[in-house]
């Protein structure tokens, strides 16, 4: 498996263990950590998927 595929493991691992992020602090613009942490990973996952997609596409051409 190519090394950059491992990028996709990051969101999975970051969200796999809820006690890690199941708390209110630190807040961001008044939003509890729990919420902004998860929502950030939605965005980060989309970004990582795009990166992997572009790399896959480029190499398969």
């Amino acid at each position: 498996m190519r090394a950059w595929y491992l990028l996709l493991l990051a969101p999975f691992l970051a969200l796999l263990y809820p006690p890690l992020y199941n708390r209110s602090d630190p807040t961001l613009f008044g939003m509890p950590f729990f919420y902004w942490y998860q929502l950030s990973w939605v965005v980060i996952t989309a970004a990582l998927l795009s990166i992997v997609y572009l790399l896959t596409k480029r190499r398969s051409l």
């Binding site: 498996m1 969101p11 999975f12 969200l15 990973w41």
Partner: peptide
Amino acid sequence: LFRFLAMTPLAWVFVAARREVIA
């Protein structure tokens, strides 16, 4: 929601592990 936020990247890891072209 929790389950699918974690399962979605996992599904892509699975795609990558099988070296499939994403198109």
